[in-house]
Structures are given as structure tokens and as C-alpha cells.
């Protein structure tokens, strides 16, 4: 069954009034995700942009229970919430830990790995802006090769850690990548995750205009280019079966990389190196854009 925008709830369970920067990719991901998850959802978010833009003093932009956790603990907290709901016989509530790339892949990785290994019935969402944007954009493990950050002006010299591969190595039943440029794909994946009573992992590309050096109106457009050039593959692995959920048109990677300030140091050689890597990955002819 294909999802249609017209079928989605109009009600916003997250978003209105949030204090995100203009064109915030994370806020867009939050709005899209809540169209899938619905009102019977509890969200734990560690220290991050998303936690900060979600609430301030006596106000919050969430319509569902939201808890701003410590940096390392969102999945562990979610596991505890699930345990309490089970103890109280409450079965129809989604428990989501929603972390940035740091709260997922770096400082939050231990508790995430623990929850995945235990197969706790929670959904972990990584909204990935590929830098530590809540502290001005330093390098993290999800920062891609060569990207300039606020503490690596010459660009990162190592590759982005493949979180989906790592999470799949835990033997979890459902893992997927997603992009804010493809909302119906994203929403369908979260609906699948929510329908399961086991650990699920969804990794969403959420550009940040400040960190990426793009105009505020390009957050979605640049995410789409990441998908279309093949650098951000949209796929899911459901009970061990891998499926690409969107076939990219294979625009040149340069069209994705060149407009971004964080890649301004990239030479033609390095762009070609990345194009070659994409071609190899998708078994496309060498040299073909």
C-alpha cells in the first residue's frame, strides 16, 4: 500500500513554535516522523539541538510526552519507560529515543548498543546533521570524509562510521535509512518500526544550514541531492531482508557536494574519488557520472 500525503493526519504532534534555526532539518524530521507515530508516543531526546529547540522554560513544542534526557542515556531511558509501561499493562504506546548523531553514534552509543542487544521494544531515531551542531559544529563520527567542521578547518580525514551496519550487526529486526527529502518513505519506515514489538533503528539525514554552509531554503533540496547522487542510499532491512526503497537518478556527486560550504576545500580529484566510490558501490561503469 502506497502512502499518500492526503492520508496523513493534519494535526502536528511536534513542531509549531519550535525554536529551531531557519530551515532546521531536524525539526522537519520531527514533524514528518510524528505523522507516522501518532499521539500515543513517548519521546526521549538527549542533549542536542532537537532537545533545545523542543522546549524552553515552561514551554514545549511537543504534543506528546517529551523528556529532555542527559546526553548518553536516551535509549536506556526509553528502555526504562518501556519496562514501566509493561509493568503497568500499557501496550499501545510507542517509545522513541530520538537522538542526534552524537547521542546516537558517539556519546550515546553504549546505551544504544545495550538497548539494541536486549531487543527492547523501542524505536531509536538518529537525526543526523553530521556534526555536533548544538555546540557550533565540531567533528563527530558521523561527519563525512573531508567535511570542514568548526574544529577541523582542513576537513575530516577519516570516514563516516556506518551506523546502520553497526546496528544491523546487533541482529535487530528492523533498520532503515531515511531523508527529510523523501517524507513518505520516511513515514512508511517509521510506521513499520512502530508496528513491531522489538528494537528498530531509523537513521535520518537532516541537513543543517549552518554546519553545512548552505542557504536556509536548501535543507530539503540538499538532502534530496544526497539521495539522488547515491551518497545517501534509502533502504531498509526487515527481518534480514534488505531492500532499496528508492532508486536514485545518479546525479553527479559534485552537484551534491559543490554547493556546500563544508566541502569548499574539495579538489576535483577528491570529488572524482567519491564519484568512483559511488559507482563501485552501485556497480555502475567507471567514470560515469
Amino acid at each position: 500500500m502506497t502512502l499518500s500525503i492526503k492520508d496523513l493526519p493534519q494535526e502536528d504532534l511536534f513542531g509549531p513554535g519550535n525554536a529551531g534555526c531557519r530551515g532546521c532539518g531536524a525539526a522537519i524530521a520531527g514533524r514528518q516522523a510524528m505523522k507516522a507515530l501518532g499521539p500515543r508516543t513517548i519521546v526521549s531526546i538527549p542533549a542536542s539541538c532537537m532537545a533545545t529547540l523542543s522546549g524552553s522554560n515552561q514551554r514545549t513544542a511537543w504534543q506528546v510526552p517529551f523528556y529532555h534526557t542527559l546526553f548518553e542515556i536516551a535509549p536506556a531511558v526509553a528502555a526504562g519507560i518501556r519496562a514501566a509501561l509493561d509493568a503497568q499493562g500499557i501496550r499501545d504506546v510507542n517509545v522513541v529515543s530520538w537522538a542526534g548523531d552524537a547521542g546516537t553514534a558517539d556519546i550515546g552509543f553504549q546505551s544504544l548498543s545495550g538497548a539494541a542487544e536486549r531487543n527492547d521494544a523501542i524505536i531509536h531515531v538518529c537525526y543526523d546533521n553530521e556534526m555536533y551542531m548544538n555546540t557550533n559544529g565540531q567533528t563527530g563520527s558521523q561527519t563525512p570524509l573531508y567535511a570542514i567542521t568548526s574544529n577541523q578547518r582542513k576537513g575530516k580525514q577519516t570516514c563516516k562510521k556506518d551506523m546502520l551496519a553497526i546496528m544491523l550487526a546487533h541482529g535487530i529486526g528492523y533498520a532503515a535509512s531515511a531523508s527529510i527529502s523523501h517524507p513518505l518513505d520516511l513515514i512508511a519506515k517509521l510506521k513499520k518500526a512502530a508496528a513491531r514489538r522489538s528494537f528498530s533503528y531509523v537513521h535520518i539525514l537532516t541537513p543543517c544550514y549552518r554546519g553545512w554552509g548552505i542557504p536556509t531554503d536548501q535543507s530539503v533540496a540538499v538532502a534530496r541531492k544526497a539521495v539522488e547522487c547515491g551518497l545517501w542510499e534509502l533502504y531498509e532491512v526487515e527481518d534480514g531482508v534488505r531492500r532499496r526503497t528508492y532508486e536514485p537518478s545518479f546525479i553527479p556527486v559534485a552537484e551534491y557536494l559543490a554547493p556546500q560550504g563544508r566541502f569548499k576545500n574539495l579538489t576535483a580529484d577528491k570529488i572524482q574519488e567519491m564519484q568512483d566510490a559511488v559507482n563501485r558501490y552501485y556497480h555502475r561503469e567507471e567514470g560515469k557520472a
Binding site: 531557519r22 532539518g25 522537519i28 514533524r31 514528518q32 535543507s219
Partner: peptide, 26 residues
């Protein structure tokens, strides 16, 4: 689905921009 603030809504068969929410990202 692309608005970070949920400022674009369909009301009474029309699209409306809720200017109280829009921060003008474009």
C-alpha cells in the same frame, strides 16, 4: 511536510500560511 514549523496548513479548501509560526526559511 517540508515546513520546519508546521506553518503551512490546509483550511477550508485553501492553503494558509500561519504567519505567527513562519520564520521565513524559504
Amino acid at each position: 511536510l517540508f515546513c520546519p514549523e508546521g506553518a503551512l496548513v490546509q483550511t477550508g479548501g485553501n492553503m494558509t500560511v500561519m504567519l505567527s509560526l513562519c520564520n521565513g526559511c524559504g
